[in-house]
Design a protein around this nucleic acid. Structure first.
Lengths: 216, 216
DNA sequence: TGCATATACCAATTATTGATGGATTGAAAA
DNA sequence: TTTTCAATCCATCAATAATTGGTATATGCA
């Protein structure tokens, strides 16, 4: 009887190994970035503003839980998610958090709901409008991330280049901007800039990971 | 700029609150039980073999993450999952763990794959066979849990009563036994008993939570 | 070959969490 | 009202995790 309890505990402890990975805000930030495609330690550290050493040690935990894979190419080591289902779990968890935690809902409104902002929800009609060219879906992430994966019909103008490349965008149609997901500030900044310049800009919360889960 | 980083961190920390809940084996065990329906602290403590005090303090964490709700009825306090999506997340996490952790796969084989055991996978054909009466789907959990929710066409004989009630089961058809999920030992025990008594018994890994996710 | 770069590994420190025993609350039963 | 039972709260101690600095390793380049 004691034996059965021991086996059971072992099982739950294995699952808890996965849960632990998702229990630190830094690791979540890394996972969100890895959802956009493979990246080096250095890049991850820079984009999260975490020291390289600490980044490396958090990545180690992801590796030990078999949630990421690494590949050395030249001087760099590239990290990538071991499976699409890791991205799916990230989406599931942050979605549940948004459903259950009022604090999170309020904090999210601060970034996504600037006065007059809109958050597009209806994915089907968005695609339809994009296909017909009635709206422009704009990916403002760095271009490597766009190249790795992007929403259907999306065009890439990284936020950094947006100001110089405004002329590429039509003024007579809505611009729907998105980035890495609901916690990424790129799209919110892009929308602010576009509005200031007289465009009809809409902030889409979803990133590619959220989109993929919704499509499934 | 510092400000933006602070806001972002706040967001990830909120999500990490949810992750933390799933980072302890004891809490996972409690969540799995709560997936079977509402229960009192005492019951949860007894069924997990965790002290009441420790159970209470783990439940407190679930409560503070808004993943469970409580209701006092008489002397007891009943805990239940705040939303179906909490059960879904439990299923997602343990499924990912099973996909990624070889240790877990091996440990699971020990309980589900006794020599000659079979694990039914194909849900559609299972239902069809159950509807036609070609097999008997047997729920061996305590009857309150069966009453709360059970698989389509399932009959309830709690493991405790199984030996006395063997006569209720036909010998000419396969008995497909299930319990709370892949980490619960009830169905495995039931299958062992049934086989010993000359029944054609099959162990179904899914519990109601896993079934619900698969149906979605 | 030697040097620079990217990243991992190791050790020490601090912060957080888990577990346990004792005291407390709130409802029900005597 | 007093007692009992279920469950929580609080304080403490032990265990675990996060962070940082120092050092080691592997690769590419001069």
């Amino acid at each position: 009887m004691k034996d059965a309890r021991k086996i059971k505990n072992l099982l739950y402890e294995q699952v808890a190994r996965i849960g632990k990975v998702f229990s630190s805000s830094k690791r979540l930030e890394l996972i969100e970035l890895l959802c956009q495609g493979e990246k080096t330690v250095e890049t991850l550290a820079r984009e999260t503003a975490i020291s390289v050493k600490l980044t490396s040690s958090h990545l180690r935990e992801l590796r030990m839980a078999h949630l990421v894979e690494t590949e050395r190419r030249g001087k760099n080591i590239y990290y990538r998610l071991a499976d699409k289902s890791v991205a799916d779990l990230w989406v599931q968890i942050h979605t549940l958090a948004e459903e259950r935690l009022i604090e999170l809902q309020l904090a999210l409104q601060k970034i996504a709901m600037q006065p007059g902002d809109l958050v597009a929800n209806d994915r089907d009609s968005l695609i339809k409008a994009a296909r017909k060219g009635e709206i422009v879906v704009l990916d403002v992430r760095p271009s490597e991330e766009y190249l790795n994966a992007h929403l259907p019909f999306a065009r890439s103008i990284p936020l950094e280049e947006l100001r110089q490349r405004l002329a590429e965008l039509p003024k007579d149609r809505s611009i729907v901007a998105y980035c890495r997901g609901p916690y990424c500030l790129l799209a919110a900044d892009a929308v602010a800039l576009l509005k200031q310049e007289g465009y009809a800009a809409i902030h889409l919360r979803d990133g590619v990971a959220e989109w993929a889960v919704a499509r499934a």
